[in-house]
Design a binder for these strands. Structure first.
Lengths: 233, 233
DNA sequence: GATAAACTCGCACAGTGTGCGACAGGTTTT
DNA sequence: AAAACCTGTCGCACACTGTGCGAGTTTATC
């Protein structure tokens, strides 16, 4: 009765071929490289084929469709995240380090921001992160559902804070940034809401990166405080 | 010296035409409708033109490019969010209601999830929400940067929690959901991490929507607790 | 040497955003 | 009245996308 089966690279049986000329790993690596250089919209099968010195449609032997390739590339990103051992540093430090690492990795691969919330994170690397994050929160003392809830809350925060940051970098990165121009723009947009001006006129726009870092830390500390509170009633 | 000026619909001067046959509002409304029905990838200029009984390229009179249209449609989403008055219900209730409202609105317009983190939220409706959210956190007692930081933290959490939920609905919505199939899938993906099983084997997959709602509340309460703690040292 | 499996790739199709230039109708200026 | 100018519409064309198909080539196995 079920219409279509749930489809994901991680569910399909992989090709058994040992290691011929072109391999799936090579393709995924090239895709990640291209994505880092040109962004999500810069990755096309034709370009990727050219980069690998092959025809575009040859890649379809190793990969069912482009989405599958993206699933594979996406999981590579999770591999780069540092997940400390809570037994060594304590759960708060461990989760903090993970959070900062996630933020940093996503910012390094901005295209991954567009994939969060579009692809299921079922790859081995994502699983490894999930597993170790569970351990962190178990070490902290969470029980039952709360272990997963705490994990979801943390990743939600990090993603939610970082994704808009990517957007900012994308719109601003390819032009010379002028604080005054930006201030003027936002002031115009907020003209109808005089109270907003007090935040705009602060020196937010002079060093946005620094302010964003501060903001990330503020939210993270708050969040961890809030989680801690759920442990001891 | 500055390469390109910062571009956004909200910065450009709008067309002055009063109200001829076709108007910008009409176009945006039709776009939102189409987006709701067919999702982000379902919106093409040709389809939209057809829906309005006009040629595709005619729309370019009212809108500079597709992105601009998306900016306009995106802002319409912000208009639907309920932003209570903190003076009436207290800041914690006010922020909770806003958070729930944001979640609900985004889930109702899933395509907006893909636009967060791709478009700047400078439209009048987004500004209105930002302004009133500032008021909430000022009423709570936050000062200076912390007012904006608290706001960013809250929206980050809501977005980060909701965006993956959209992805889930998208992959699952168009097929019959089978808890056991899903459980088996995830169990397979997590095979290398035995500790994950204890969360998988709980009844998460029987009523995912309910669990997600629980999770959202857990994170929200934690976050607000954490923010509250920053008020009284 | 033959048969089959593994792999490559050119062609073609249906679709996309959008620049361009040709139109039409109304308003204003000469 | 004529000419010039806006406002608005739209067909055509370009370069680009993912990918199904089928014919071709290489490699492995018996």
């Amino acid at each position: 009765m079920s219409s279509k089966p749930f489809s994901s690279v991680w569910v399909r049986e992989p090709r058994k071929s040992a290691a011929p000329g072109r391999s799936r790993e090579e393709i995924v690596a090239a895709a990640v490289e291209l994505l880092d250089q040109e962004g999500l919209s810069g990755l096309s099968m034709r370009k990727l084929g050219a980069k690998l010195g092959s025809g575009a449609t040859s890649l379809y032997w190793y990969v069912a469709h482009k989405d599958e390739l993206l699933e594979l590339a996406y999981d590579e990103v999770w591999a780069e995240m540092t997940v400390p051992d809570p037994d060594e540093v304590g759960w708060r430090d461990a989760t903090s380090v993970l959070a900062y690492s996630m933020r940093e990795v996503i910012l390094r691969h901005p295209w991954s921001g567009d994939l969060i919330g579009r692809l299921p994170a079922l790859g081995p690397n994502a699983m490894r992160v999930a597993d170790r994050m569970r351990r962190m929160f178990k070490a902290a003392g969470f029980k039952g559902f709360d272990v997963d809830f705490a994990g979801s809350t943390l990743t939600a925060y990090v993603f939610g804070m970082t994704i808009p940051e990517i957007a900012w970098n994308a719109t601003m990165g390819d032009r010379d940034y002028d604080p005054d121009e930006m201030r003027a723009t936002v002031r115009k947009a907020a003209a109808a809401h005089p109270e907003m001006l007090e935040s705009i006129d602060m020196d937010v726009y002079d060093d946005p990166a620094a302010i964003r870092a501060l903001c990330f830390d503020f939210g993270l500390v708050s969040l961890l405080d809030g989680l801690e509170r759920r442990l001891a009633p």
